[in-house]
Design a protein around this nucleic acid. Structure first.
Length: 651
RNA sequence: GCCGCUGUGGCUAAGGGGUAUAGCGAUUCAUUGGUAAUGAAUAGGUCGUGGGUUCAAUUCCCAUCAGCGGCUCCA
């Protein structure tokens, strides 16, 4: 038989059990086409019109019959039919195909027995109102199948008729061995260190009185029940396009964006700021490659745990994957380093520009979830758990400062989530309660009965948007696995080599996601009647001069150049009313109308974003601007100073 | 990846089997303006892309790309 699979994806977890039963592979297909090519010795005699077949939208069952099925044809047929019907119902189809596929078997049963089961199964299915296409038995056939690929579209089962009554058994065993998953339980950890258990009843979170902590409630609801408000286009997508910050790039892969000058400037300032803060607190900045060899021994075992989520590309010589985090480069670097306990704790840092994750198509939305993103990634290497805990507290403060500096009200505008193994919680409950106390609001705790990732504890601060969707910004994870995997060692006081504990931190979360959260946060405030406004240090234009007529244009240019701020000049041939309207639509902090009056008095007429209009000298304005800038990174205007010289990037 | 919805000048949209309409923007001219839209004229569209049905497709059908919503996922 010549098989040609098109558009089919077999999951990595696809495992056959080594049993001796009827074996079935179910595929929910857009269509199946087959053609009988050549007889085998066992072939049915069939008319020419049965040699070819095609069916649209059907559940295709590839089936082999094993020795053990012999003598239990009736029961086997019944069981097979039940399995087919059960799955057909789930995928909502009435079309089925029975496709004898001997290759599934390691101990094929006798053909007569198989044929009998097939015929009887078809009878049962037809009785129940299903359409059945039986592909011919005993022929070499070619086929084409288009697999739908939704979660239920591919299932394999082995089906064995009960042994006792010679055939009437009901046993159905799953061949798709489900991945061993840890069981999560959920709690709220209060300021008093008390753990309150949560449960889900009718999809509502019960067990804790959230009181004023509405956003925590929303967050917990999202985490436990995945519920959210009725969805529209996310507000930040409209903002990022309208203000010409960021846009989709249809010519790339989904989740890869273009950044216009203003968006690139904001992103660059955020990167500079996070770099500055991590370096200020002892992170050593490095750079590592973005692509890695699939066959490298340390990477291989790691990748094996998370198949098919990465971009892979062909170099002239080998296949490589694009990094999905900066861990690889840093660990490989540390593998080669010589480290003593006296050096610990130590921090390695990289602004991973970029990291790549081939996220599922439907999960990508605007700047919230991308396939290509910029992630500050800071690893601390610690000698023992106690050191790791102290280090985490330190980094907790770092994240606090970073997110606060960026423009979030920490902790008011974020929600704290702790994810931890039961064992770590029990041994370190005071430490965790201490973090919550420092946070100042109750936190969500997800507790696992056993470890199933490389970490035993991690926390995140989550932003909850106007649609009730939560996204983690910063995170810190306590890794107990990778030092061994990458053979990272330090020499202890005892002169022996030891594996350090590794902390993985992103002090701000992905920069793109920070932009998402900033824009969504502005939208949230706007809904309460506030005027939308960037944090001053991130505003593309901080000050705009509006010359009343051309005679004062030169003065405006001079003044704008003098200010240590991003100041531009609206020199377009427009009315003052129009220029003000446009400046307001650009969310500009300080709008200055400049004419004869100002020229003569030396005082500027400044219209602030909050609506207040005041008279200031250029010096007074300069000192106000300096104060707002607060030691945050500064950069020049991303666009020409004169508005008449600016192109429009998207109408 | 699955299901559903959307795709019309640079932007935002209306329309609908007989090659399309408005506002904004752009261009030109006039206007030299005082705190959220100065006026007039002009140009600009193979209706996302590729097939099919039809005398005729932007409109109907199929496929495909992109976006959104939901599911799933989130090392």
């Amino acid at each position: 038989m010549i098989g040609s699979f098109t558009n089919i994806f077999i999951p990595m977890s696809f495992l056959w059990w080594m049993g001796f039963q009827m074996r079935a592979l179910f595929i929910h297909a857009d269509y199946l086409e087959y053609e009988a090519k050549k007889k085998t010795k066992l072939a049915d005699d069939i008319s020419d019109d049965k040699k070819k077949g095609r069916i649209e939208e059907a559940l295709v069952t590839y089936i082999s019959f094993e020795e053990i099925d012999e003598g239990k044809e009736e029961a086997s047929a019944k069981l097979l039919a039940e399995n087919v019907m059960e799955i057909a119902e789930k995928v909502e189809t009435k079309n089925t195909v029975l496709y004898p596929y001997a290759h599934l078997s390691s101990s094929l049963g006798k053909p007569a027995s198989g044929k009998e089961i097939l015929e009887k199964t078809a009878e049962i299915l037809e009785e129940k109102g299903y359409t059945v296409l039986s592909s011919p038995f005993g022929w070499y056939k070619s086929f084409k199948i288009s697999c739908k690929g939704h979660p239920l579209s591919e299932l394999s089962r082995e089906i064995v008729a009960g042994e006792d009554e010679g055939g009437d058994g009901e046993e159905v065993s799953e061949a798709l061995k489900s991945e061993e998953k840890a069981v999560s339980s959920w709690f709220v950890l209060g300021l008093d260190g008390e753990l309150t258990s949560l449960e889900l009843k009718k999809n509502k979170v019960k067990g804790y009185d959230f009181g004023d902590h509405k956003r925590l409630k929303q967050f917990v609801q999202y985490e436990m029940a995945k519920s959210r408000t009725a969805g529209k286009e996310p507000p930040h997508v409209d903002i990022m396009k309208r203000l010409e910050l960021v846009d989709y790039e249809p010519a790339s892969d989904p989740g890869n964006f273009r950044y216009y000058p203003k968006g690139r400037m904001m992103k660059s300032l955020l990167e500079t700021y996070v770099n500055q803060e991590v370096k200020r607190t002892g992170g050593m900045e490095i750079e590592t490659p973005i692509m890695y060899d699939f066959e490298h021994p340390s990477l291989k075992s790691y990748l094996h745990r998370f198949p098919a989520r990465q971009y892979s590309i062909q170099t002239p010589d080998k296949r490589v994957f694009l990094r999905f985090a900066a861990c690889f480069g840093q660990f490989l670097m540390m593998h080669d380093a010589t480290v003593s306990y006296k050096h610990l704790p130590m921090r390695l840092y990289e602004m991973s520009h970029y990291s790549f994750r081939a996220e599922q198509r439907g999960e990508l939305t605007g700047l919230r979830r991308l396939r290509t993103f910029t992630m500050p990634d800071c690893h601390s290497f610690c000698a023992d758990i106690e050191m790791a805990k102290l280090e985490m507290q330190d980094r907790f403060q770092l994240s606090w400062d970073v997110l606060n500096g960026i423009g979030f009200q920490v902790p008011n505008e974020l929600e704290f989530a702790i994810r931890v193994t039961k064992e770590f919680y029990d041994e370190n409950s005071e430490f965790l309660a201490g973090l919550v106390k420092k946070w100042g609001k109750p936190a969500l705790v997800e507790m696992w009965d056993k470890r199933f990732f490389y970490f035993i504890f991690k926390y995140e601060w989550n932003f909850v948007d106007s649609q009730g969707k939560a996204s983690a910004l910063n995170t810190d994870q306590l890794d107990v696995e990778n030092a061994e995997r990458y053979d990272i060692n330090y020499v202890g006081m005892d002169g022996e080599k030891h594996h350090p504990y590794i902390l993985h931190q992103s002090p701000s979360g992905a920069i793109e996601r920070v932009m998402y959260a900033l824009l969504e946060n502005i939208h949230l405030k706007q809904m309460t009647g506030e005027k939308p406004k960037f944090p001053h240090w991130l505003a593309p234009t901080q000050v705009r001069f509006l010359p009343v007529h051309d005679d004062v244009l030169e003065n405006c240019k001079e003044l704008a150049g003098k200010l240590n701020a991003r100041a531009d000049v609206d020199d377009r041939d427009q009315s003052i009313g129009k220029k003000i309207r446009d400046a307001e639509k650009d969310w500009i902090d300080f709008i200055i109308v400049y004419g004869e009056k100002e020229q003569e008095s030396g005082k500027l007429s400044v219209r602030r974003r909050d609506g207040v209009q005041e008279e200031l000298t250029i010096e007074e304005l300069a000192s106000k601007l300096a104060e707002l800038q607060r030691g945050m990174p500064m950069t020049s205007l991303p666009l020409p100073m004169l508005l008449s010289k600016r192109i429009s990037f998207r109408g």
